[in-house]
Design a protein around this nucleic acid. Structure first.
Lengths: 352, 352
DNA sequence: CTGAAAGCGCTAACAA
DNA sequence: TTGTTAGCGCTTTCAG
C-alpha cells in the first residue's frame, strides 16, 4: 500500500525519469519551506540553527543532491567556467587547466573544457556552446581570436580571461607573459655565450601565434645585437613533438653551416633536437648551445640538462582563477589593471 | 561619446541582467510558436521547409544562442558528460579525455572535467557534483571506487563508463585492458631475453592501483617462469616523473647486485631511469634491459629507443565515446558485452 | 505539421 | 528568520 502509492506519485507515467529527490522533499521532511532550504544551502549562517539542523538531517537521510541545472536557470548564471585551450594534450595547458580546476572547485565552480586545435573557427564554435551554458566565466588561450568570437563574448557580458599571452588588447582580462620577450631573452642568452649563427626551431607556427611571436622576438633581438649575428627561423608544419625536434635539427644542420646556437619553441622539440645531436655526433653545448621553452618534467634530468625558459603554467592558472573569483564576487578593482604579467625566467643549465 | 555608451551597455551595473535572445524572440520574428522553433532545433526535418527557413533566418538575424541550461532542466537530462580522471597532467588521461571530447562534441555533448588526485573520497565528491548536473553520462577512471560512489552512481541511473581498466565488476560499462597482463607481458619479454634479476620501478603505487596491478602481474609471471628468476618491486611514494625514475634506478642498483632487467610503471620513469643509467655508466641494453609503459611521445626517439607497452589511450577514448553515445541513443545491445578490452601491445625497441 | 499548456527544480524579490 | 510568489527558457505531451 504504502510502497505503491509512493511509487505512483514519484514515478511519472511514461519516462521512468528516476524519482530524483528535490529540494521540496527536503523541505517537507525538515518542516520548512523550500526557500529556506535554498537559503540554507547558499548561506547556512542565514537560517536559524534549529532549522539548519533539521535541514541538514533531511538532506542526509534523503540523500539529496542539488540540481545545478535548475539552479543555474533560476539564477540566470550557472556555476560553470568554460575553458578553451588549443589542446589538452599539451603539457602546458594541462597544467594550467588542472590548477584552475583545483582552485575553482574549492568555490563550487565546475570546469567545462574545450579544445580548438589551434583553429579560430573551431574556437568560435566552442565559445558559442560555452555561452549557451550561461557560464560564470569563459577562459580563452591567447589574444588572437576572430572578430565574431570577440563580438559574442563582448555581447554576453560574461567575464572573460585570456591566458598565456599579454601584449595586446584583451577582450576583458588577461593573464600571461610576452612571447616576443621570451624570444628576446633566449637570444640574449645565446649571444652572451658568444654564439653568432642562430636558429629558431618551431612547430605549427602558422597556427600557433604565440610560438611565432617567440620566434620573431628572437629574430628582432638578434638583429639588434652589438656584434653581427645571423638567425634563421625554421618551422615544422606538424605538431610540436620530440620527433619534430629531430627533423628540425637536421634541417638546421643542413641549412646553417656554422650553426652554434639553437632556440626551440618548446622543450619537447628541444629534447628531440638533443637526441638528434647525440645521434649526429654534434656536441652540446660545446659545438651548439641549446635553449628550450617550458621547463617540462624531463628538462632538468636529460643529458645534458636543458637550459630553458619557464613560463609557469601553474602561476598563470592561479591568477586566472583569482581574477575569475574576483569578477564573480563583484570585486573587480577599478584602479588595478586587469592584465597580469606572470613573466618568465630563464633557467640556465648545461645545454648552453 | 561612443566609448562611453559602449561602456554602459557592456558593463551593466551590478548584476548582469542581460536581455538574452530567447526562443520566444525567434518564434515571434519567424511568426511561429516557440515549440515549433524547439522542434526545428532538434529535428529540422520535422517542420515544413517554409517554416524552417523563416526560423533559420530569425535565428541568424537575432544571433540566437540556445540556452542549454534551460533545455537541460526541461529535458531532465543535460547534454554534459562528466569525466573524472586522477590527473589531467598525466599524458595518458589527457589523450583519452581529448579524444572523448572530440568525439562527443560532434554530437553536441559537452565535457565536464574533474580530477581526483588519486583519492577515493575526492572522487566521491566529484561524482556528487557531477550528478548534480543530471549528466548524460559519467566516466570514471579505473574500477576501484568507494562504496558510496558506487551507490550514488548506481542509484542515479545515469550511464557510467569506467575506463583504463577491466578485470573486475564494472558499475555499468568498462573500457580498458588488464593491468596484470601488461605486467606479465613485460616479464615474459625480459625473461625471453635471458634476464633473470628483475625489478619493477613504480611510483605512487599506494594510490595508483593500476600501477600496483601491473607490478603484481609482473611479479606473478616472474615466479611462474621456467628458469628461476628473481623480482623486486620498488615504489616511489611521489608522482611518476622523470626525476622519480632516476631515484628509483639508483635504489634498484643498490638493492639488486646483478640487476639485469627493469620494467617501469610508465615511460616517464623509464626515461629517468635511462638518463640515470647513462650517468652511472650502466649500458642499456647490454647490461640492463629496460621496458616502459605508455609509448609516450619521446619513447621512440630517445637513445636507446625505449621498448614499451602501448595501451592506446586514444582507442580507449573512442570506445568510451561509442558506448556513451549508444547508451544515450538507447542502443545498448543486450547481447553484447558492455566490457571492452582494448588490449595492449609490446613494442620492442633498442632498450631491451 | 503546428500550437497551447504544463511544468522541469530552483532562486530571488518581497512580504510577513 | 521564514514563507510566498513568480518566473528562468526550454521540452514535451496532447490537441488541433
Amino acid at each position: 500500500m504504502d510502497a505503491s502509492s509512493d511509487l505512483q506519485n514519484r514515478v511519472p507515467r511514461k519516462r521512468r525519469k528516476m524519482q530524483r529527490v528535490t529540494m521540496m522533499d527536503v523541505a517537507k521532511l525538515a518542516q520548512v519551506s523550500p526557500s529556506t532550504v535554498s537559503l540554507y544551502l547558499r548561506k547556512p549562517g542565514a537560517v536559524s540553527p534549529a532549522a539548519g539542523q533539521e535541514i541538514a538531517r533531511a538532506i542526509s537521510t534523503l540523500g539529496y543532491v542539488p540540481n545545478l541545472v535548475a539552479g543555474g536557470l533560476a539564477a540566470a548564471s550557472s556555476k560553470v567556467v568554460s575553458i578553451i585551450v588549443p589542446s589538452i594534450r599539451n603539457a602546458f595547458f594541462a597544467e594550467t587547466v588542472s590548477t584552475i580546476q583545483s582552485e575553482l572547485s574549492a568555490e563550487g565552480l565546475q570546469v567545462i573544457l574545450g579544445h580548438s586545435e589551434y583553429g579560430e573557427d573551431q574556437e568560435e564554435a566552442l565559445v558559442r556552446t560555452a555561452l549557451s551554458w550561461a557560464p560564470a566565466a569563459v577562459v580563452l588561450t591567447g589574444l588572437s581570436h576572430n572578430a565574431e568570437t570577440r563580438k559574442l563574448l563582448q555581447a554576453s557580458g560574461v567575464p572573460v580571461v585570456e591566458m598565456w599571452e599579454i601584449g595586446g588588447k584583451p577582450i576583458d582580462m588577461a593573464v600571461g607573459f610576452s612571447h616576443p620577450q621570451v624570444g628576446a631573452s633566449a637570444a640574449r642568452h645565446l649571444l652572451s655565450k658568444g654564439r653568432r649563427s642562430l636558429a629558431f626551431l618551431g612547430a605549427r607556427m602558422q597556427e600557433d601565434h604565440r610560438a611565432a611571436k617567440r620566434a620573431s622576438g628572437f629574430a628582432e633581438e638578434t638583429k639588434r645585437a652589438a656584434e653581427p649575428a645571423t638567425c634563421e627561423i625554421i618551422n615544422h608544419p606538424g605538431a610540436a613533438t620530440v620527433e619534430a625536434g629531430s627533423l628540425l635539427l637536421n634541417r638546421a644542420l643542413r641549412q646553417i653551416p656554422n650553426l652554434d646556437g639553437i632556440v626551440c619553441s618548446n622543450d619537447l622539440i628541444a629534447l628531440g633536437a638533443l637526441f638528434e645531436c647525440q645521434r649526429q655526433g654534434v656536441a652540446v653545448p660545446e659545438r651548439v648551445s641549446l635553449v628550450g621553452f617550458g621547463d617540462l618534467d624531463f628538462s632538468a634530468s636529460c643529458i645534458p640538462s636543458l637550459t630553458t625558459i619557464r613560463p609557469s603554467g601553474d602561476l598563470i592558472g592561479r591568477e586566472v582563477a583569482r581574477l575569475i573569483l574576483a569578477s564573480i564576487h563583484g570585486e573587480r578593482p577599478e584602479g588595478t589593471s586587469l592584465v597580469v604579467d606572470t613573466g618568465h625566467v630563464l633557467i640556465e643549465r648545461r645545454s648552453s
